[in-house]
Amino acid sequence: MQTSTLPISYAQLTFSVLLVLITGGIASLLRLGLLKSLVWGTVRTFVQLTLVGYVLTYLFKLNSFWPVLLVTLLMSFVAARTAVKRTPNVRNYPTLLAFVSLLASTYLVGSIVTGLIIAPTPWYSPRIVIPIFGMLLGNSMNGIAISLDRLYADARARAAEIEALLTFGATPWEAIQSSVREALRAGLTPTINSLMVVGIVSLPGMMTGQILGGADPLQAVRYQIVVMLMIAAAVAIGCLLLVGFSFKKLFTSDGALQPFVGQSRQ
């Protein structure tokens, strides 16, 4: 990386344990019952990030296409699994649909960013592609989870109204439209809000990292702008796809509302 990076040695890293002691002190003093999780979490942070460091070093050295593809696929799959599990209003949602939505949205946006805007050589350069996908997936994952959850919750809340529309000959799409809109709005709102406050309330992690790494702040800002906009695009596409795949699941093949949506009525 840039020559101006201030390296942290392993000896210096051990000092960060001091910070854990402070957190642990507060946790045990107030008997928060978090001590075990804190220790376990600290260990995991060290182990996971160190491993990722090695994996990334290895991938950057390899600098070839197939490993990058494999890693981004794996990342998408894990993100899809996590998104599907984070939806209290939805039970047993197929991971595959979330996976397809995430894959389509991140690959489309990711290729625009790496191929058109950053344009590294080679175009699949893991040093660019992997962090970009990480940021896209991290945000899309939350977005689609919120959208999916809201779609189900809103459909349940409006079940009587949806059925009333059906009795006038509404198609499932016509009957569910307002819930779909609500779901997309919910999924996109956090991302759009972050566009408003970025740089004022929060200095985003990516930009901070680059600046700490010694990069020119103006360059870091340009990267950050690209990152913010690409995240918004990926979240929008991901939510749209997943909600599009999902709304039909709320209806039977005869176009009636599924019993699990409207059960509260009787």
């Binding site: 529309l165 006038f168 509404a170 198609t171 016509e174």
Partner: peptide, 8 residues
């Protein structure tokens, strides 16, 4: 509202 639906 019902008349905004395709069926009607």
């Amino acid at each position: 509202k019902p008349f905004s639906l395709r069926t009607l």
